[in-house]
Computed example of a mutant assay.
Amino acid sequence: MSYKEIVQRFHDEVLNERKYENTSEFVSPQFVFCSNNSPASEGMESFRKYMSVFQDGFPDLTFETLHMAEEGDVVYLYWKGSGNNTASLMGMPPTNKYVEIQGISLFELDQGKIKMNRVVFNTVDMFQQLGVNPPQL
């Protein structure tokens, strides 16, 4: 399986199907994740907790791959996330608004497993689409 296929599987199974429990086949036990300028967190459980903020607030949240490139042990993924804010998000009541954002993920792999995932997306744009001020994080 190519590294691009592994990353696409991560996107499909973990982000879209929310299957966090069966990732050891393609995610390293030393998996590290960081988003925007937040501190890095280790392990799939911490990643699941991070994603639950968005997946709970946008129960129909899905991610679409717009472009992917592989260079050595690194895969770059340009994606679009979209969904309806029908539940509480970061302590704010639902707005019932549809949001569509784009971002870039950089995946580092080692021996066929994802060891690092760095994500950058425009949080201000997301809150503007919701019509609310960003919470103090």
Rank of each mutant, 00 (worst) to 15 (best):
F54K: 03
Y50S: 09
T62L: 05
F127H: 06
V124G: 10
M68F: 03
M126V: 10
T86P: 06
D110A: 13
F121R: 02
M90W: 06
P59L: 06
T86M: 08
L130P: 04
T65L: 11
V99P: 04
D12K: 15
F10C: 06
G103V: 04
F54D: 02
T123D: 09
A40E: 14
V53R: 14
Y50T: 10
E45R: 04
P29L: 06
G131H: 08
E25S: 15
F47L: 12
V120Q: 15
R9E: 06
A40G: 14
G81K: 07
I104F: 11
L130V: 05
E17N: 11
D73R: 04
V124A: 15
I6L: 07
A87Y: 01
L130T: 05
N16D: 11
V75P: 05
I101N: 13
D125F: 11
F107V: 01
Y78N: 12
D110H: 14
S105A: 14
E71F: 09
V53C: 12
D12Q: 15
L137T: 02
R18E: 01
W79E: 12
F121A: 05
G91W: 08
R118L: 03
F31L: 05
M1W: 09
C34Y: 13
E25Y: 11
N36R: 08
S105D: 13
S105N: 15
M126E: 10
E21I: 03
T62E: 12
Y20A: 05
C34M: 09
A87K: 10
L130G: 09
N133K: 12
M44L: 13
S46V: 07
L77G: 00
P59V: 00
E13T: 02
P134Q: 15
V119N: 14
G131Q: 09
T86C: 03
V119M: 07
A40K: 11
V14G: 03
V32W: 00
Q30W: 11
P29M: 08
A69Q: 12
R48P: 02
Q55L: 08
G57N: 03
N37I: 00
Y78R: 15
R118W: 09
G91Q: 03
N37G: 14
E5G: 02
E71Y: 12
Q111H: 12
Q136N: 10
S88R: 10
V124M: 13
G103W: 01
P94T: 00
V99C: 08
F127A: 04
Q102F: 01
V74K: 11
S35H: 08
